[in-house]
Design a protein around this nucleic acid. Structure first.
Lengths: 357, 357
DNA sequence: TTTAGCACTCGATATGTTTAAGTGCTAATT
DNA sequence: AATTAGCACTTAAACATATCGAGTGCTAAA
């Protein structure tokens, strides 16, 4: 899969311009209102009059870092401005030892079960950031198998339980054309488990071994099964519902996010809720991050990432120690997001999550 | 558990009053604006002047079926008015054969896996109603067991897979103080499965049998286990997160609901989203319905069900044929909900869902 | 019993006015 | 050459006021 994951390169700004840009961005973070030249003159160490600052602001606007919502208003950062801030101006907050311990505690008490952990992480991300946390579950294809078990539910109905080496389980129940008794099923699963123990393979590998071995015999149990049990997991169905374990998006509570002043506008709030409840675009961007293997910052503007226009999404991939499980996490907030607070949270959480799955 | 599930009894209204009330409610459904006497005079079969209708409206208001948002406005139904409409005035729509087939098709293509079905049902309820569908997963305590399997994940870490007779599975992974090899674990699960086959019991029943049998031996595997495997399922944890399979709420997409005119007000929309994402109150009301065993209608007003004030929640219980799995489904919408459309959907779906789980 | 007529209420809408914040430009100052 | 004081100008927001229209309750007449 090919993806563009590079970081853009910004032309340098003079020290003075950088300081004024920083002032504008931090001022905007604080007040949620356009920042004027007078405010900068009074609230930064620069000993300059508002008139001088106006001159520099005009050139910062020319260069695309800030803009005016209307003629006689102050300035607001553009997407380009935020990016410059994140890459060069921002001083990331440190997560205190106490906070780290709190996170560990809240995740430790979770059932040691992937779905439970991921759901919990999404809630935790919401809580810590006061925005909305999202978690994309890892794709199970490629994960080593530990155990497979067939259980007869009732006549011609079988449940397959697939246990991966990392403790994740997947259940698939399906119908077969002729009934098979439980002890025969147990024989079949024993045989599969023998292969798994010897060859240390993933689902796809197992499929190959089985289809080679059982090539001729059409009536064979495994050949009936293979179409069912090895069917691709983790994709959306014909109705666009994401029903499978994999590729599943966990979304934390979004209550706090709604209190941000940008969502006092009715259209904004609807766009936010629809974007989150639609899941499609969020999953797309989180998938992108998973493939990039590094933290990504999506700032939704008219020109770029317009699918989340007006929203920011900070994401990072996570991976289990053996690199078998890959997913990503993220935080959705307004453009005017507290990046210096949120980014360390994402960094810490992606690493921590990698360590416990 | 004791719950009040009775239906209130309304004093009778004259034929004319009923017809005017019906006109007001249907008019309000159509326009989302307070309905005046002139509108009723012109849009119903009644050959009455607006002045006469005003007299009757005054008495309907006196009796609490309608109210005026302000002095010179038309009338809006109260919660009491809606209830009277639902119980006595409404003519429920029929679900066409075609729609039924569509529902069946969309649920048939789902993986035959409880979680998948329930998630799908919540989406389907949203789609069909254009409001927000919710589904409360059944409580598994009381469901007969089919199979238990212990799998050694790694040193001192065990995964227990519990399969219920209805095909639902539950996974619990936990730590044990001393390591046990897989073949020994298999012996243990075989023993349990023997008991399950003979006694046909639920988790609680199994626990009793085991603890009686293994009374003396403290070092015993089962006694180590019992605290873990039989720990209560389906409740929220110390942080209020609902992480377990049971008692889990599935919420369908709420995009359509946001388009209703009642949610053009910013506070309304926030209340809706917070109520849904909070889950607690929705779960409470769905749980109430499950215990009542009949369809329930919650109309959120200042006086009653104020936790969903301004919202309506139509719910119905569902149960598997053998009555082992009990849960409930619901649709959340504005007070001005299209009850005659939504109620048959809820009725059909609760019955249909009971049939396929 | 019904209704025409009327005075009255009150939100919604439109219009005009004022205010405050902020700008760009120019000429004076450092 | 860089900086700044001063000023005319722009605009959104806040406020005040007037008008309109939908709807009411009441009374007296049909």
């Amino acid at each position: 899969m090919e993806e563009k994951c590079e970081k853009p390169n910004y032309n340098n700004l003079s020290e003075r311009s950088r300081e004024i840009l920083l002032g504008i961005i931090e001022g905007y973070f604080g007040t949620a209102n356009p920042v004027g030249s007078k405010f900068i003159a009074e609230n930064t160490g620069l000993n300059l009059s508002s008139a001088s600052i106006r001159n520099i602001m005009a050139s910062l606007e020319e260069a695309g870092y800030i803009y005016q919502p209307h003629f006689s208003a102050g300035r607001i950062p553009t997407a380009k401005g935020y990016k410059f801030y994140i890459d060069g101006l921002m001083i990331a907050e440190k997560i205190s030892q106490k906070e780290k311990e709190n996170i560990e505690k809240r995740l430790a008490s979770a059932n040691r079960n992937l779905s439970g952990i991921l759901s919990r992480v999404s809630i935790l991300l919401s809580d810590l950031s006061h925005y909305a946390g999202v978690v994309l579950a890892p794709d199970m294809s490629g994960a080593f198998l530990l155990h497979i078990e067939f259980i007869r539910i009732k006549e011609k109905n079988i449940l397959a339980i697939i246990v991966f080496a990392n403790g994740v389980t997947e259940n698939k129940s399906f119908y077969i054309p002729k009934d098979i008794k439980q002890n025969e099923l147990t024989r079949y699963s024993n045989k599969l488990n023998g292969i798994i123990e010897n060859k240390n393979c993933d689902l796809d590998g197992l499929k190959k071994i089985i289809t080679e071995e059982m090539y001729s015999d059409k009536e064979n149990f495994y050949s009936i099964l293979s179409s069912e049990i090895f069917s691709p997991v983790g994709n959306t169905d014909d109705y666009g519902d994401c029903i499978n374990y994999d590729n599943r998006l966990y979304v934390g509570p979004e209550g706090d996010l709604l209190e941000e002043p940008e969502f006092s506008n009715n259209e904004q709030i609807k766009f936010l809720i629809k974007t989150i409840s639609d899941k499609k675009n969020i999953i797309k961007l989180l998938g992108h991050t998973k493939n990039c293997k590094t933290k990504q910052i999506f700032i939704g503007s008219e020109e770029e990432w317009s699918e989340i226009s007006g929203l920011s999404l900070i994401t990072a991939p996570y991976a289990s120690e053996n690199n078998m499980l890959n997913g990503s996490i993220g935080i959705i907030g307004p453009l005017r997001m507290n990046y210096s607070h949120v980014i360390p949270i994402i960094d810490f959480m992606s690493e921590f999550l990698g360590g416990i799955i």
